[in-house]
Amino acid sequence: MNDAVQSHAEIENFLRAFRQGLGAVPADIRDDLVKELWSHLQERLERGQLELSNDFGSPQEYARQFVNEQLLGTAIVRGRPWELLPALLGAIRTASVAIFLVLPLAVAELMGIALVLIGLSKPLASTHIGLFRSADGSFGGLGWISNTNSMHEVLGFTSIPLFIFLGLLLVWTGNRIMLAVARGELSRIRNHRHNSMSLESK
């Protein structure tokens, strides 16, 4: 095999592994990145300056930089909870942060959504939906209660604005904290990348 053929094969192998590593990135962005890198490597090859492993490291590791950047960066810009959560869980390397911070925040946001839904559905079944107290005065339940014989609903229609407000507040607060965690994680990834690779002199 001559050098040119070997170099072409090396580029193709690198790009194949790079594309696989970009798996979680949206297809259009993935194609764009691979096309750009292909163009770069071809030009380096034409100049006789191709040093793949020296300049880019392993294709999987290189792809990981884009995956975290793309998913977390895009999720932060858009600020949508359903995009933030998977991006954060995919990027976070510290299990304790995921278990004790990100997942509880996700649960809090789900509870917020549930509260909003309870508030909105109250007019549909006012005697079965709301905040309930048992006959002995203890907490009876929150949400839908089918058998309300031994308890009574406390808030009445006041619960509609109250539940909607509290639910939205919970979702908003949870999302703000999750955004802050995501920004911190992205900053950590960028610092790690800078420290671990490639600004040194050739």
Partner: peptide, 19 residues
């Protein structure tokens, strides 16, 4: 500024994400 090839694209990608 001696910059390696692999450094530039993640940076450009971030700059694009940040508009």
């Amino acid at each position: 500024l001696d910059v390696r090839d692999g450094t530039i694209y993640p940076l450009l990608s971030r700059l694009r994400t940040e508009k």
